[in-house]
Amino acid sequence: MMFSQLSDAISNGLFLLMIAGIPLIAACKKVKVYEVFVDGAKDGFQLAIKIIPYMVGMLVAIGMFRASGGFELIFSWIGPFFEKIGVPTAVVPLAVMRPFSASASNGILLDIIKNFGGDAHVSHLAATMMGSTETTFYVIAVYFGVVNIRRTRHAVPAGLIADFVGIVASIIVCRLLLV
């Protein structure tokens, strides 16, 4: 409990440091802070509007697949393999879902922690996996969307390789460091 309060305090502190610190130091350097701020902020709307089609496309396809029970089918295919190498099958949904949906994988992580308790190895493994991977498809769709890139070349395979290595590394590291 202590630490989560501390980490909250740290992230709040950093946030305020940026929000107040950047304009303050800039003002000392004779930057017209408010005018410059407004000028930069103008781009926000354009950027948000530009990513809408990409977000709709990606989230609809992922939402349909989730609703169809497709992810459960994949879990049942991969599950036995995880079992064979001695990895708790409870983390399979997290590993599969992680590149597609942040909210779904957050929900899975919470479920695991709720069911197995905060001190269980599975919970620590799931938390580590969560911390070493990203919502690859969402990031790629949105970041490329903003500049209208349609040929993404090797970005998807590279991102998935990074996620895969993150998951494998989590399994190994948790087995070595957390007993």
Binding site: D8, K114, A127, G131, T133, E134, Y143, R153, G159, A162
Partner: peptide, 28 residues
């Protein structure tokens, strides 16, 4: 662009604050 995205999608977070908060809330 691809290099930038690879770094981004590999997650570079130093302290996984939300995961720690979940564990703490479950009494770890």
């Amino acid at each position: 662009m691809c290099t930038f995205l690879a770094i981004n999608t590999s997650s570079v977070q130093l302290i996984p604050t939300s995961a720690i908060a979940f564990l703490a809330a479950a009494g770890a």
